[in-house]
Structures are given as C-alpha cells and as structure tokens.
Design a protein around this nucleic acid. Sequence first.
DNA 1: ACCGTGATAATCT
DNA 2: GATTATCACGGTG
Length: 208
Amino acid sequence: MAPRKLPRDFYAQDTLEVARALLGKLLVLRSAGLAGRTPPAMDGVTHGTTMVEGRRIGRVVETEAYVGPEDLASHAARGRRPQSGRAAIMFGAPGHAYVYSIYGLHHCLNVVTEREGYPAAVLIRAVEPMEGLSLATNGPARLCRAFGIDRRHDGLEVTGDLLFFLDDGYAADPALVCTGPRVGVAYAGEWAARPWRFWIEGNRWVSH
DNA sequence: ACCGTGATAATCT
DNA sequence: GATTATCACGGTG
C-alpha cells in the first residue's frame, strides 16, 4: 500500500490507543524547508563515516503514554504549574511535538494527544532505523540525537512536512505487543506501576 | 553501582 | 533576580 501520513484525528484519540497504534508506524524527519530549524548535524555532515541524508526514517518500536493532570509521572501533573512551563504544549491541540531537554544533554520527543485543554502525550522511546540513520535509536534521547531533534522542534505539527508519522501498511503482530511499567518514573508513586509502556517483543531496538 | 550535565521549576529574597 | 533541587537519560564500571 502507498504510505499514508497519519492525520490530525489520529492523535485526538485516547492516549493509550495512540501509544499502542504508533507501534509499527514510520517516524519521518525531513530537512527540506527547515530554514532556521536545521539541526547542525543535518545537512552534508557526517556521523562517523556515513554521509547523512536529508531524510531520516525509523519504525516506532517502543512508546510510553503520559495521561492527564493526575498522572504524577507526567510533566503536566497538577502541582507543577505545568500550564506556564515547558509542558504547556501538552495542554494544547493534539498532533504537535513536545520536545524537552533533560539532564542538560539529552532531548526526548513526545506527540501531544487527546483534546485541547487535557494534558496528554506519547513519548517515542525507540525506533528501528530504516533510512538516513547512523547513530543508535534504542532510547528516547538516543533517537533524538540520531534524528537531530532538539528544542527547535518543540511545538511543530507532526502532520506537517518536517516531522510526521507514516502508515506503510506494516502491522506489528498483536501477539508481540507488550505492555509494562514506564521507565525512570519510580518517583511517581502508584502511577509508576501503570502499564503504560508499549513495545514490540523481540525487536532488538527496544530500549529495555 | 555511580555520576556527568545544564535546563527547568520551585523557593527563596 | 538569586539559589537550590530535581530530572520521562545514557555512558561507564
């Protein structure tokens, strides 16, 4: 089938459904038209010995859901003054990128879900490299480094021309889709135990 | 297991 | 404005 870009409505669904449905989809980053946003590593630069292409594609193999103002693992949790900080984008319209920096040296990519006014997003934790990628993509910060994604991509529509998801007809075997607790959120009390991490069992690019 | 790293946000003046 | 605590990670041992 001809690859089909995931439409805006896709991201307006329940967050757990989006996190599940993104498994097997293609994450695409293009350099064309990136004026003012081109990452330093993008055009004509080498990673190691491999020349980087202007288009980078990876198949999503691991995601996590962050759902609602009560979710203490979420940057948009009530009590963090989230609506005036970096996580404000999570309260906005679905289908936008939320890219945050962490530990001073890493970036992570999320996609905003559900309805405007309700803070929710899906963290892209790992992709299987398909095209134009020469660095490791098994981890949320590693994949951002491999794609050249950073804070300049924050707020971009993921239904636009720069950053988007494709359905190329590939479907993960439902029997191989696993769920479990999210990574690195032990501080979140009972919310840490929720099985809101999704991955394709056996895929070598899954981070954990 | 330990810790680098600096952006955020919370908590002070 | 200044100070402090925290961190949806990754590299090293």
